[in-house]
C-alpha cells in the first residue's frame, strides 16, 4: 500500500520514514513524498492507475496550496483519499477541506498516534 505525503518542509520525510519504520520494513507500507502541490500531482500522474491510495497534504505551501491540491486530486483521481494536515486548526480551513471531500483533518504538531490509527485502518482494509 502506497501513501503520498505532501509538505514543503523536507524534514517531514525523515520523520515519517522513522515513524513508520516497522511498517515500511515489513513491506506493508510504501511512502512517497512531494514537496509542493505541483510535485504531488506529477507523482500521482506518473503511474496509471496510481499506486498511491492515500494522500496526506499540508495546507500551507507556497504555490499550489493544499486545498487546491485536494480539489485537483478529487477531480483527477476521485478514488484517492486525501487528508489535510494544517498548522492552523481554524474552522474556515476545516470546513473548506471537508466540503472539498477531505477524509480527515489533522492539526500540527502531528499527532502520530491518531495518524497511525488512520494508516492502520487503511492497511487493515487493504488486506
Amino acid at each position: 500500500m502506497k501513501i503520498l505525503i505532501v509538505d514543503d518542509e523536507k524534514d517531514v520525510e525523515l520523520l515519517f520514514r522513522q515513524k513508520f519504520r516497522k511498517e515500511v520494513k515489513s513491506g506493508v507500507l510504501e511512502l512517497a513524498f512531494a514537496f509542493s502541490g505541483e510535485e504531488a500531482l506529477k507523482v500521482l500522474d506518473s503511474e496509471h492507475p496510481p499506486k498511491v491510495i492515500y494522500v496526506f497534504s499540508d495546507i500551507n505551501m507556497p504555490g499550489m496550496s493544499g486545498l487546491e491540491l485536494l480539489n485537483q486530486v478529487k477531480n483527477q483521481f476521485p478514488e484517492i483519499q486525501v487528508s489535510m494536515i494544517s498548522a492552523y486548526g481554524d474552522s474556515q480551513n476545516y470546513e473548506k477541506a471537508m466540503q472539498s471531500g477531505a477524509k480527515e483533518f489533522f492539526t500540527k504538531p502531528i499527532d502520530f498516534e491518531s495518524l497511525k490509527v488512520e494508516v492502520n485502518k487503511l492497511i487493515e482494509s487493504q488486506k
Binding site: 520523520l15 500540527k108 504538531p109 502531528i110 502520530f112
Partner: peptide, 14 residues
C-alpha cells in the same frame, strides 16, 4: 516558530 518546534518535538519523540 511552530514548525521547528514541531520538528523538535516529533524528532525527540521518534
Amino acid at each position: 516558530i511552530q514548525n521547528p518546534l514541531n520538528f523538535v518535538n516529533n524528532f525527540s519523540e521518534v
